[in-house]
Write a protein that binds this DNA or RNA. Structure first.
Lengths: 97, 97
DNA sequence: TTGACAGGCAAGCGAAGACTTGCCTTCACT
DNA sequence: AGTGAAGGCAAGTCTTCGCTTGCCTGTCAA
């Protein structure tokens, strides 16, 4: 699947967008921290594995980078693909005069 | 479904994004014109009904507006939702100092 | 008025996706 | 060593999605 498609697909799920928002709020969280936030702040009831799979999709799309440290794995938000996307997406631009 | 979700879902499909690109190239096309362009310029083999359903999704998301005129229905691109999206989407912004 | 053209509606199918369940690995701490 | 915590893997379920098929509606032109 091409990179654009992976990006759009990753953004297509509301739970995944919520994860991004939470990582933007506090960068470098572990899986369990993220799960806790989704439950507390957003009332989501997804299981740990479900969130883990969502994180895998986000990682595949380049939106999240992971850093292992001991038995923890910290997830970091990467806004690069999003910035690149809004720069490159040709629809949202004026037509040449 | 909330508006953001409809937008992201609409953008999630590559065929739908191609339709948007074609409408950006030439605004106000009919269903058959769009079908022709998808076949000619992009090698897509989707049926008329498939494209019609894609257009319905795009319309639902507010990305396409339709104007009936006799037996023709002209589709117009609306870049408003896209512009609003990149303005509002909180990830792609610097944190306040 | 009748045929052809532009488009719509709805049921059904197959594939992809979100989620669960169960078990396994790895690391830290005592 | 051994126990508990963080995370991973894989198979199975169930829903959603994209698309097809078939038929129907409305409009223009001969």
């Amino acid at each position: 699947m091409d990179a654009d498609q992976e990006l759009f697909r990753a953004l297509g799920d509301p739970t995944r967008r919520t994860i991004l928002v939470e990582l933007a709020d506090r960068d470098g969280q572990t899986l369990f921290e993220i799960c806790g936030r989704l439950v507390m702040k957003h009332g989501l009831t997804s299981s740990r594995q479900a969130i883990s799979q969502h994180l895998a999709v986000l990682e595949q799309a380049g939106l999240v980078r992971a850093r292992r440290q001991g038995r923890y794995k910290f997830r970091h938000l990467d806004t690069g693909p999003l910035r690149a996307l809004v720069e490159r997406w040709p629809i949202d631009r004026e037509a040449p005069p």
